[in-house]
């Protein structure tokens, strides 16, 4: 099991659904949601939340800076 567990919070109204974070995620945690936000974009969300290791790759590549990442030691 991974040493760290992470959680990604996406500001779904700012997200433009470009999918760059989905591609950058090494654990395939993120996906684009079936629903759309106020602007009509399929926003990014944690599809497989348990697999997140908090590596912050998604936040680093996000062009619209709508991702906040939290990380804690796995208990």
């Amino acid at each position: 099991m991974a040493k760290f567990v992470g959680a990604v919070v996406v500001d779904k109204e700012t997200c433009k659904g470009c999918g760059v974070c989905v591609d950058a995620c090494p654990e395939s945690v993120l996906a684009l949601h079936r629903d759309v936000n106020g602007k009509g974009y399929h926003y990014s969300y944690m599809k497989d939340a348990g697999a997140c290791i908090g590596c912050i790759n998604c936040g680093v590549v996000c062009p619209d800076t709508c991702i906040t990442v939290y990380r804690a030691k796995a208990s």
Partner: peptide
């Protein structure tokens, strides 16, 4: 996990 002390980015 989502707590201020765990914020990394």
């Amino acid at each position: 996990i989502i707590k201020p002390e765990n914020l990394v980015y």
